[in-house]
Design a protein around this nucleic acid. Structure first.
Lengths: 206, 206, 206, 206
DNA sequence: CTATAAACGAGACGGTACGTCGTGTCTTTCC
DNA sequence: GGAAAGACACGACGTACCGTCTCGTTTATAG
């Protein structure tokens, strides 16, 4: 990301000493380490990050313009790899897509990241937009494809707005992770949600 | 709330000059004013709040122990009054309960509060718990009652966990407000969601 | 001095917590201590001064606008008390006035102050002016009075510009202290200078 | 000077690309230019010097070990050529030696150099010693020779320490340049001083 | 003509200090 | 004893230089 990176503006071969990738890694890893150790996000200052990574402050500011921007890359570094779709049916694909969201709420590592960093990132519209564009949107797009395929194959009604459909599946899972992260999530939650939404909540035979 | 309030500990008649309610109001109103004016939450310091309200810093700390705690009261001050339930059917009651959530995403005033302050509050577990207990939980309880009544009256299946059911209705609305607050929300969104969840997304006749 | 002090601008009784004199003293004393310990002036940062005095940086900046201004007060704190004039003759008074200048070059304490701080102060015209006005000028004035009295009493020619006369006495002493501070100064240097300048350097009988 | 020059240590013919004299010149000239433009010495960083001269920082550090050392060469580059002695008499030679000091206080260019750089150089004992040895001492030696010749020729008393005599002539001129550089210096100041010191300040006939 | 080696412009790097701001507490005076 | 004012120790902010260190490139001598 490195929105602050001004090198990209120039043409021609890069001049001067190149930026160290090792340094970049050690900063991100230092941040992840601190979060894993339970340090509150508010207590993670650029100053402390620099100390932890054994790095000068300027080296951080050379790459990111501030804490929010840096943490977009931190988030990205901890994103689970994209789920593999079984492809057996739309139902199974949806479950596979929701499952990682459920897991997030469990692992203390990801939990800290999701519930604190996520909140922090939201406070800056620009950063939030960047995070959405590079992390959330791709997944959304994948889900949409699965849903449209489902409509084509007759597994899904096609008289409801696809965006609403998406929210009907994703929303219930996310509302738990965001609003009640401390609550336990049953292992088959993804299955429960997908099936209930497909079948409907009206009692059978009405 | 006023966790910092130390008066409650003492017995007997209050001594000395009583606290001015006007001061209390002007602090909260000052905070709301700043938020409405689009000042980023990060730029609202206790120092600035005191200046804005024409009040000493100590006067603020005498009432709240910090920014998060203060903003719980600010949030409460802007909460819409509880929705009135028509009582005609579970479906109508659910729509009435979801409708305020939809409106939140529209008014710029509430939008700022929800998407920034909300995020900020989440960073402090203690404060988040307090907010949940006094603001969110009561509504949740109301919703649960409506759902249970629906089960009793045969409007709702009773073989699905009531908590999951709750999320199936609330989640889709919230995921929009939280993840894509800038998107337009169709006026009949609450209706769409409730009906779709009740009916199910499987194509009719399958 | 406290050029940075903005309180003086306001009328009426001072409001809020008054500035602590003890803090003021401990800052100046800390600076003097560091200089006495041989710490190079260039190594005395505001940051270090604050650490040494156990004081916040803002507390220093509240009183002085920077290092130069602060060191004017440090210099003033170490100025020797004004010499007492015997009054027996112009010659004796002049010697009494020059003697403290000679001593300056000896004591390691004052030496450090004179030869480093002095140089530092000179780099800022504004500060140098303030130092001259409050420290140097008063002594100059005293010397001028002594010289004029000498002219009245017939101890001194009155056909030479009094400013030049002043320099003839003060210059030789100062040139040693400033240009060759490491050289030893004979104990009767003040006497030697005054007598030589009075008598003239032409061989007797020419 | 080039104390940092490490090439001299090696034997044999120099290998690799030789140092560019043009670069050396452009650095010094850049420094002189900045000083003439009234840039405060404190604002002239190595970084800025490199930018101004269009030169890499390492190129500067390859030649000088720091700012003070560099400015010794800058000072040397602006030293007026040694005064030519008329040789007609000790009095005339002394006046010729003092005259350049008087002129220094006038020209804004040299003024900036003398009163700021000079002060800066003094803060580093090592550099100050180097400056004294290569610039000041030679002049001092010349003055001493003139004075001794004067003693031999009967123009000067020989019962006063020659170092004190030197200070009696040089001090009055220098005290003006150093302590009151802003004051106007009468054109015949050198003459006034030399004659007054030779004749003495006692009224004639006492 | 190639190889070697140092100089060079550029700029990254770990640091330190800058001067400002906000934190939560403390100390005044006035009410 | 409440309240406004503002001092206080602390520590983070983002910037500027420090002196050192790679980079790719240039310019000399040696073979």
């Amino acid at each position: 990301m490195n929105l602050a990176d001004s090198r990209e503006r120039h043409e021609g071969p890069p001049r001067g000493r190149p930026r160290s990738e090792a340094v970049e890694r050690s900063i991100i890893e230092g941040a992840v380490k601190l979060l894993e150790d339970g340090v509150p996000l508010a207590d993670i200052s650029i100053e402390r990050l620099a100390r932890t990574a054994g790095v000068g402050k300027a080296t951080i500011y050379r790459r990111w313009s501030g804490k929010e921007e840096l943490f977009v890359d931190v988030m990205r570094a901890t994103e689970p790899p994209d789920a593999e779709l079984p492809g057996t049916s739309m139902r199974d694909d949806l479950i596979a897509l929701l499952e990682p969201l459920r897991r997030r709420g469990l692992a203390s590592r990801s939990s800290a990241l999701l519930h604190n960093v996520y909140a922090q990132i939201k406070t800056s519209p620009k950063i939030w937009a960047a995070y959405q564009a590079t992390v959330i949107e791709p997944r959304r797009r994948t889900t949409f494809e699965v849903l449209r395929r489902g409509q084509r194959d007759g597994e899904l009604r096609d008289d409801v707005d696809i965006e609403v459909i998406n929210d009907l599946f994703v929303g219930p899972m996310l509302v738990r992770a965001v609003m009640r992260p401390e609550a336990e999530l049953p292992e088959d939650l993804a299955e429960q949600i997908v099936d209930a939404v497909l079948t409907g909540l009206r009692p059978p035979g009405r």
